[in-house]
Nucleic acid binder design. Structure first.
Lengths: 153, 153
DNA sequence: AAATTTGGTTTCGTTATGCAACCCTATTTA
DNA sequence: TAAATAGGGTTGCATAACGAAACCAAATTT
């Protein structure tokens, strides 16, 4: 039967995954963060099939993660640019990247070295933090009773 | 043809997505963070098909995100528990959850309310941060030249 | 002993993915 | 000016993944 979708799940993680949780969408967003904007460039840099790229770009546009901008005189060239919502995936992508760098380091690829443009200092490691900025593990937090962890929480 | 996999990609985001980037894996990890450990409980709480759950649990175990623990006398009951690597996905899940809460709020579901067990205070919003803890947007950072953004960077 | 729980596997039909080929409109190049 | 190329897709086909339900076997409960 049809792949299960989560549009109506009462779990926002499930709904988020519905928008960017497939094999390609988050890589497209990542590529967009690197500055890629054109169809052909996405296609070549990601090595994605063109029909799949079409589908993903359209869905990301539908979901307001990217927006399609006509460039050039007669509207035959487009650019796909991140929206605010798309740019807001930055912490997600960086967290995932740091996780990958930590647990699946590639021999031929350095860990992500993002730096503060203002100071040149490397960024901090992503962490769940307390109000005063201390890193918290999953054991250091709790959910007040109003949240029920059942049914994909 | 076969679904493209990224085991050997030189992008750690791609490799991370290879492990937890499908529709279910991250939800299983999330459910595990809520305390679920048994096959049947995952199945019922997520509403996932049993064969798919089998496959995903096995893959997560293979990838050392979960580990399978025999419980009970004769080894016919198992538990799937998060490993350190799995627990390290906490920032990823929280970042994704906060993104979902912000951009796709569900009418019938409150935003995540995680609190510091020590103080009872809500956690901070996930953000990429400078060395001294200031939040950074994607425009506030750069990558030194050693990183090449090409080929899914 | 019979029923239930747990953790799977098998079968089968539907959906998604990847590749290649094709199409149409601009813009270059010869 | 004709021909080639680039951009942005769409279409068809073969294969792989997914979902539902049925089936299975060991262990536990009733």
């Amino acid at each position: 039967m049809a792949r299960k979708r989560f549009d109506d799940s009462n779990c926002s993680v499930a709904r988020a995954l519905n928008e960017v949780g497939d094999w390609w969408s988050l890589l497209i967003v990542l590529q967009a963060m690197y500055g890629t904007r054109r169809f052909v460039d996405f296609q070549q840099e990601l090595g994605i099939a063109r029909n799949i790229l079409c589908d993903r770009l359209a869905r990301l546009v539908d979901n307001d993660v990217l927006r399609k901008v006509e460039v050039g005189e007669h509207g035959s060239r487009h650019e796909y640019r991140l929206t605010g919502k798309g740019r807001d995936l930055f912490p997600v992508v960086v967290a995932l990247r740091q996780w990958g760098d930590k647990w699946n380091p590639a021999p031929n690829c350095d860990a992500l070295d993002l730096r503060d443009r203002a100071t040149g200092q490397p960024i901090r490691e992503m962490a769940v933090q307390s109000a005063d900025g201390k890193p918290l593990s999953i054991r250091d937090v709790f959910m007040p009773d109003t949240e029920t962890p059942s049914k994909t929480g």
